[in-house]
Design a protein around this nucleic acid. Sequence first.
DNA 1: ATGTCC
Length: 488
Amino acid sequence: MTTYDADGITLHKVRDYVWEIPQDESEGMRAPARVLASETLLDEISDDMSLQQLKNATHLPGIQKYALAMPDAHQGYGFPVGGVGATDAENGCISPGAVGFDINCGVRMMKTNLRYEDVRGREEELVEALFENVPTGLGAGGIFEGSVADVNRILQGGVEWALAEDWAVPEDLAHCEDEGKRPDAEPSKVPEEAKQRGRKQVGSLGSGNHFLEVQRVTDVFREDVAREFGLVEDQVVVLIHCGSRGLGHQTCQDYVRDIEKRHSGFVDQLPDRDLAAAPAGSQLAEDYYGAMCACINFAWVNRQLIMHRTRQVFEDVFDRDWEAMEMDLLYDVAHNIAKKEVHEVNGKEKELFVHRKGATRAFPAGRPELPAAYRDVGQPVIIPGSMGAGSYVLRGGENSLSETFGSTAHGAGRTMSRTQAKQDYWGGDVQTDLREQQHVYVKAQSGATIAEEAPGVYKDVDEVVRVSDALGIGDKVARTFPVCNIKG
DNA sequence: ATGTCC
């Protein structure tokens, strides 16, 4: 048997791109763990704490089948980014650390009918107009600023609120995961302080790896699926990557603390306090789930307002109505989320909390959750790469339901810490190189953010996507390359 | 990721 030794953790090769850490009950593992990666990616994944964190995740009560690391996995808070963990929704647990601090950090892609030649030569103008109109960075305010009562309406209604306030058209809802609204949202369970922070953050990009990028489609791999998605070579598209800002962060933080306090016995059984989980059925598990669903709605509204503002910017720059430019939403996918979903486990349908932290839902054709537009083809999966490498659109793969609880990767995944990146790169140089060598126009609030997000700090997104495609969990449909990018 | 320290 082929094995891979990673500093005290031995993985057994199950088949190409599938590696397993066998269950050791004496250690308290309640299931095996699996890493979906090529050996190249495994070399990078085993370089940080992510394999130990993945092993720790198998200790979560009620964990089903195996804890999973996607090809882009790297270490996170308690639970790896690029991790998937499904727990029994009745007798298991829910873990905020396995969702992530940025609840419903995610990405949406908006199409246009513009061609690359329509924007080439106007990058500077476009990037300036976007930077002027879309709030970026910390403390920049939001496109919409309201009262706590407004925040409550957003938390409850999701994109339905945006539609009622003329920040959306009905087609936007029809092209968003869950139609842009988690019905399980309980705004009353979101901490007051989180709502206060959220008041001024509705329609704001934030900082770190969040960005808005105009891109062009460079490659189409599956013509039939691309046609269904409305994607063609040379088409201009817009990618928006951001989350629930301080509101989601505060909510996660408060619930982790509460869980550690009120379920200390339960948490003490786990190998890492940062994995803190509330037992399914407990009041706190219910409260966290309701609050998290509300934060999910907030993040969808956040991306919706940014997208709608982008339509207005394009109207100004290109002097045409956005409808005439066919600026329609392709899809919006969550990257940090836990959801009640029904999956088959040992031949039986079971309701699970599927934690996807830095992982994308990748449902194939036929799943009832999919919107009408994609029910017969499979959902679009959007995987941002780096500013120098481009991004991918995939289609939920047939094998995802049996292999990954309907999930695949979410990005390139970092290989270098932010601190290290700022030592190795200078923002101004990265910006100049991108412009002169790759014709990519970047504008950011802070040079440090550009350094932190230098293309060199990321894994090879082509390799991540190649593995997803080979495993049949997410099929390659199209590739894009940046035109211009704004960030915090 | 994040009013990058309650």
